[in-house]
Amino acid sequence: MELFPHGILHYAIGGLLIGLGITVIYLSTGIISGASLFLESTLSYISKLPRIQSYADSRDWRVIFVLGIVCGAVLFTLLTQQALWTTAVQGWRLLLGGILVGFGTRLARGCTSGHGVCGLGSLSSASLVNVLIFMGVAILIAQVVQVLGVTP
């Protein structure tokens, strides 16, 4: 079995860039920023729920952060002259998966970048526990989905 049938270079370079983006923000502002809190902080523009309002302080710069993420991907697409790409994952999986992802990441206070990259990078044992759970469950579910014949 081949571990990396599509090579390793783009994975390694992409990973280093992700870490570099977090580093730029950390060294200049002291902020360790994951990606999922944007969901709740942005909802504070329209929801008065106390929990959601408690994240209102950071909502403006988190919008800028996510705009940066989108523009960074646009820049990559333009520079490498890649054609626009669309997923073949079905809409119902995106919607249902998205709801579960939004719920789970916000309940657990972090996602692949918050608990994954930033938490593990901080040597946080709580983040390690969270990552092992979500990765283990996700591998299990992806196998089940595959066995049921749902592709991709």
């Binding site: 994951g34 969901l39 992802v101 789970g104 309940l107 970048s113």
Partner: peptide, 19 residues
Amino acid sequence: LFGGLIFGLGWGLSGICPG
């Protein structure tokens, strides 16, 4: 713990995460 479990369900179903 519970959040990690729910996130894992969604991630495994769809392959999407926030960032």
